[in-house]
Nucleic acid binder design. Sequence first.
DNA 1: TTGTGAGGAGCGAAGACCACT
DNA 2: TAGTGGTCTTCGCTCCTCACA
Lengths: 345, 345
Amino acid sequence: MSMTARDTRGVVMFDVAKLAGVSQKTVSRVVNGAPHVRPEIRERVMAAVSELGYRPNVAARALVTQRTHVIGLLAVGTLLYGPAHRVFTLEQAARELGYELALASLPDISSDSFHHGIQSLLTRGVEGIILEVPTHLTDVDDATFGGLPVVTSIGKIPGVTHQTVINSNQREAGRLATQHLLDLGHETVFHVAGPLEWDVSQHRRDGWADTLAAAGRPVPPELLGDWSARSGYEAGRELAERDDVTAVFAANDHQAMGVMRAMAEAGRSIPADVSVVGFDDVPEAEFQMVPLTTVRTDSYSSSRRVLSELVALIEHGESTSEGIDVACELVVRRSTGRPPPHRRD
Amino acid sequence: MSMTARDTRGVVMFDVAKLAGVSQKTVSRVVNGAPHVRPEIRERVMAAVSELGYRPNVAARALVTQRTHVIGLLAVGTLLYGPAHRVFTLEQAARELGYELALASLPDISSDSFHHGIQSLLTRGVEGIILEVPTHLTDVDDATFGGLPVVTSIGKIPGVTHQTVINSNQREAGRLATQHLLDLGHETVFHVAGPLEWDVSQHRRDGWADTLAAAGRPVPPELLGDWSARSGYEAGRELAERDDVTAVFAANDHQAMGVMRAMAEAGRSIPADVSVVGFDDVPEAEFQMVPLTTVRTDSYSSSRRVLSELVALIEHGESTSEGIDVACELVVRRSTGRPPPHRRD
DNA sequence: TTGTGAGGAGCGAAGACCACT
DNA sequence: TAGTGGTCTTCGCTCCTCACA
């Protein structure tokens, strides 16, 4: 008589022990790969485990070991390419290190939902927290995170001790994009920023502004987008009205697409009349009707760094390194070129 | 003397009880909103809870209640727009119903990683499973899922009893797209399908083929993509070589973008020479240099349906409904138009 | 002695049951 | 008798202690 599926639920260690003719403790040893078990007995136990379809109860284990092996991720804007991509690479990195990810995606950028999210993670028993939210939300102290280690790629959080900051070099990335356009001969570069509540927006913008300033060029006021192609389109329409716009750096690829669309609609051709640079290198950027020049960051290795930092903090209570820099790279395609030869003064 | 952050970890119900001057059981009642507690005592307990920063231990609770309130999601291709979007809408829907999502994203479409994923979910103590993977992987029976309820939008799984199938109408969607192109006067429609291991690819393709057949039109062999813009581009280059191609239906928007790129490169203009329809209505589809005509499905309501089905199965052991249809809608933009007037025979 | 196994306590919370009003 | 609150047991597992080769 074989077990039915339903029965499987109720199989506990004791049942396995009984079937294998050993003590429950021995089963525990086998299941956890502990030493001091004769190979013969080990096999007998394993056989009983698979015969009964035994599966250890994580709740019971967590209760006694005081460990959950769960890492909390607090994120915003998970419907956007960047954040979504980040979630999945982090999830994969977590799995590789023997942890699971508990996701709390905030519905909006408010202090309320931030604290809600944190509470929810703490309640779920996470052992560490990854913060992928704007720092300005984090008017907090150690108590907010229940003393857990915190890792973030968005900048140092004042008042929190157990934290590591991964510098993903957004500023440098903004510099790369801008310098590329200047090198092509553009007088200056216009910028369609992301929402300024996001730290990355600020960093990319700062990189842009710094580069222009360093080159002694005028720094035009930036336009603001919300990461969407629509917002890029709207900004693009404004820019298309001015005939001194020959180069635009958008804070992400989707905004850049919107800019390109607006330019096309206004009869400005890309890159002959206007050059456009994006950010993210989304997979389809290369296959736009005008392939998009963009900046790519190594998000995989960044995620892996973030996670190994956090795991080190959790398991040894110490950080393996201080600031960590992640590489970024300019990918030049067809949407950028020399400025048009004839320009009014 | 206030508690430090670290101490917060060790606060248990008994501590709260002591501080409030009641029994542990009473604290339990208050925390769980159980009746038979005087308002006065309730408040006293609440005060103690927040003073100590008490937070219930999920593991202990799960152990005794035999409930985890966790739903498992098995998904593939989570880096793609469609699946990623689905994960986040499902996660939100789960939260709304008081559950959490445990995500297992498969690294590849193999039977091995499928079973690994399932095992991982079962070990995590999920109470139900959402399957977002190709059905052909599921050569399984009830035992595979530990007798847990299963919900899927990809089609009925043979051999599994506790399941509900949400029909997301992919076939109808393929029909919509194809009929739109025929209505515009195109002789026939070419198709760049997704990987045929994915059920949705098959359904969309079937909808396309059926429509052509029903209209008595030739059904050209479909080209195969892998969901990426690159694969769309490659298919597009093949199509661009033929001068009888005036209409293309791509199985997703990114493939459609690749097709458009290839056409542009070959000097075929859109929609004057070639019409292109995509699928998904990704947010940037509207803001492509030629805004993309596409098919949109209501993924939010679909996710909500999937989840409420599963929760009903978990909590009452029964399905609230049989097959469920989810709406889809054609969004006509600029990438489709009448076929070019002059065509060779 | 040193491996190898068994027995018992306890993790934190909830439910059955009992004891007061 | 109802409403309130407390006591004791239990969930499944791991660790500590101890017994046996």
